[in-house]
């Protein structure tokens, strides 16, 4: 019989494999033991966590997280969907989370206005909410001004303008009901079918997934001003009239 719990580390985080047949309570006890043993090893690392094997309910996931928090110094920044836990996804998610933490603050954010430690906590709450691949939206009302960054764990609708120097980052889609003159980054952790739409599209820079579009290269050839939607097609960002 294989071990009931296997913890594997990769470059960016850890994967915990739970045996499917062992009862959950037993697994918890074993996990606790393992964590206590290895607490020195893990130090204060910030990591992404993913699960393999046994399918955990949201409640069970929470219990596991509680255990990790209590019995090790590990800081779990986010939980990843077990179905696609490639190193690449780890890297993207972790880079994003670290960047957000380093930035220290979300200057303006309608729902997840979070700072410092609370941010970490909130972040995995939000990611867990989104773990079924639905991307519910968020709204932000007002002008996003120069130097202001709006980040969203989901899709975001901005009712107002994004001025030059303003920046929107979302894991899902971005819709600007106004003029987008600043930068927008949709699908920031790898959602390839993310889009950016604006009633008036005059952006400084657009990013979707791993593609970037800046005026000066291809933007100038595209139809601008007026309602536009930007999507990835043929391995580049393309803009269509709405």
């Amino acid at each position: 019989m294989s071990q009931p719990i296997v913890m594997k580390g990769n470059k960016y985080g850890i994967t915990i494999r739970f045996d499917e047949t062992t009862p959950f309570e037993e697994l918890k006890a074993l996990l606790k033991e393992k964590l206590v043993q290895s607490s020195d090893f893990f130090q204060n690392a910030r990591m992404a966590l993913s699960f393999e094997g046994r399918k955990l309910t949201a409640r069970e996931e929470e219990e596991v997280l509680d255990l990790i928090e209590t019995y090790s110094k590990l800081k779990i920044i986010c939980i990843l969907d077990h179905s696609e836990n490639t190193a690449k996804r780890f890297a993207a998610a972790l880079a994003l989370a670290k960047q957000q933490i380093a930035a220290g603050k979300v200057e303006k954010n309608s729902e997840n206005q979070t700072r410092g430690e609370t941010k970490e906590k909130k972040q995995f709450d939000l990611i867990k909410d989104a773990s079924p691949p639905i991307h519910p939206g968020q709204f932000y009302r007002g002008t996003l001004r120069n130097g202001q960054i709006l980040e969203s764990e989901r899709s975001i609708v901005i009712i107002g303008n994004v001025n030059p120097g303003g920046k929107v980052i979302a894991r899902g889609n971005i819709v600007v009901l106004g003029t987008l003159k600043g930068s927008a980054y949709a699908g920031c952790d790898g959602k390839q079918d993310a889009f950016i739409a604006a009633l008036n599209m005059i952006p400084t820079q657009l990013r979707i997934h791993e593609f970037t579009l800046s005026p000066g290269d291809k933007l100038s050839e595209m139809p601008l001003e007026g309602p536009r939607i930007a999507v990835i097609r043929d391995n580049r960002i393309q803009m269509d009239c709405i």
């Binding site: 200057e107 001004r145 120069n146 130097g147 030059p164 120097g165």
Partner: peptide, 13 residues
Amino acid sequence: IRDADRIIGLLEA
């Protein structure tokens, strides 16, 4: 204008 925009953002904050 860029700087004014930034300043207004800070004042609002």
